[in-house]
Simulated scan of single mutants.
Amino acid sequence: MVFLNNKILTERRSFFAHRFSMQKSVRQTLLMGTLLLATFVSTTLLSSMSQAATTADQWLIRFADAMYSYHYSGVLVYSREGQLDTVELSHDVSEAGEEARLSYLDGIPREFLQRGNQITQKISGETVASDRIHGRNPSGRFSGGLEQVKKYYQLQLKGQSRVVGRPSVVVEIIPRDNQRLGYRLWLDKESALLLKSVTLDPLSRELETFQFTSFAFTQRDKPLKKSDDKAAMPAASLPWLPEGFEVYMVKESVPVSETHLANMFSLSDGISTFSVFVEPLRADSLKEGVHQYGATVVVVRKVLNDNLAQMVTVVGEIPLHTARKVADAF
Results as ranks from 00 to 15, higher is better:
residue 193 L to A: 07
residue 208 E to I: 04
residue 233 M to Y: 15
residue 245 F to T: 12
residue 139 S to N: 09
residue 126 E to L: 11
residue 239 P to R: 05
residue 172 E to P: 10
residue 173 I to R: 01
residue 234 P to W: 05
residue 203 L to W: 15
residue 126 E to S: 08
residue 130 S to H: 15
residue 217 F to S: 12
residue 133 I to M: 01
residue 140 G to H: 09
residue 158 K to Q: 11
residue 215 F to N: 02
residue 199 T to D: 14
residue 233 M to L: 15
residue 240 W to L: 10
residue 224 L to C: 08
residue 144 G to R: 07
residue 162 R to N: 10
residue 187 L to W: 02
residue 137 N to E: 14
residue 209 T to I: 01
residue 149 V to L: 11
residue 191 S to W: 09
residue 182 G to A: 04
residue 188 D to S: 00
residue 148 Q to N: 13
residue 200 L to Q: 12
residue 161 S to G: 09
residue 185 L to R: 09
residue 190 E to M: 08
residue 159 G to S: 07
residue 223 P to H: 01
residue 194 L to V: 07
residue 129 A to Y: 00
residue 206 E to P: 01
residue 172 E to H: 06
residue 215 F to Y: 06
residue 219 Q to R: 15
residue 202 P to N: 03
residue 217 F to N: 00
residue 211 Q to A: 07
residue 196 K to A: 03
residue 228 D to E: 04
residue 147 E to V: 13
residue 141 R to P: 03
residue 181 L to F: 00
residue 136 R to D: 11
residue 137 N to P: 09
residue 188 D to P: 10
residue 178 N to G: 13
residue 168 S to G: 05
residue 150 K to A: 08
residue 225 K to V: 14
residue 130 S to V: 13
residue 234 P to T: 09
residue 227 S to Q: 15
residue 136 R to C: 05
residue 226 K to P: 08
residue 242 P to V: 03
residue 161 S to M: 04
residue 184 R to S: 04
residue 166 R to K: 10
residue 194 L to I: 00
residue 197 S to T: 15
residue 176 R to E: 09
residue 190 E to L: 03
residue 135 G to M: 03
residue 135 G to Q: 09
residue 185 L to M: 03
residue 224 L to P: 01
residue 235 A to F: 08
residue 163 V to C: 10
residue 212 F to W: 01
residue 231 A to T: 13
residue 190 E to P: 11
residue 209 T to W: 04
residue 200 L to K: 11
residue 142 F to R: 02
residue 200 L to T: 02
residue 240 W to C: 09
residue 198 V to S: 15
residue 150 K to P: 07
residue 209 T to A: 00
residue 219 Q to D: 11
residue 172 E to N: 11
residue 202 P to R: 07
residue 173 I to E: 02
residue 160 Q to W: 13
residue 167 P to K: 07
residue 228 D to R: 02
residue 243 E to F: 08
residue 133 I to Q: 05
residue 157 L to E: 13
residue 228 D to Q: 02
residue 215 F to S: 04
residue 139 S to C: 01
residue 131 D to C: 06
residue 131 D to R: 15
residue 152 Y to S: 05
residue 133 I to V: 12
residue 174 I to H: 07
residue 208 E to W: 12
residue 246 E to N: 13
residue 191 S to V: 06
residue 171 V to G: 06
residue 127 T to Q: 11
residue 197 S to F: 08
residue 178 N to P: 00
residue 201 D to W: 14
residue 206 E to I: 04
residue 189 K to Q: 14
residue 231 A to E: 14
residue 158 K to R: 10
residue 219 Q to M: 11
residue 147 E to Q: 13
residue 211 Q to K: 05
residue 171 V to K: 12
residue 155 L to N: 11
residue 241 L to F: 05
residue 244 G to Y: 04
residue 247 V to Y: 04
residue 174 I to P: 03
residue 156 Q to A: 03
residue 178 N to A: 14
residue 208 E to F: 04
residue 212 F to P: 06
residue 176 R to C: 01
residue 134 H to N: 12
residue 221 D to H: 02
residue 224 L to H: 10
residue 229 D to A: 06
residue 126 E to T: 14
residue 193 L to P: 11
residue 146 L to I: 12
residue 191 S to H: 11
residue 227 S to A: 15
residue 200 L to I: 02
residue 159 G to Y: 06
residue 247 V to M: 02
residue 225 K to N: 14
residue 190 E to I: 07
residue 131 D to T: 13
residue 246 E to S: 14
residue 183 Y to T: 05
residue 213 T to K: 15
residue 241 L to I: 02
residue 200 L to D: 09
residue 210 F to P: 05
residue 162 R to F: 04
residue 189 K to L: 01
residue 189 K to H: 01
residue 175 P to D: 03
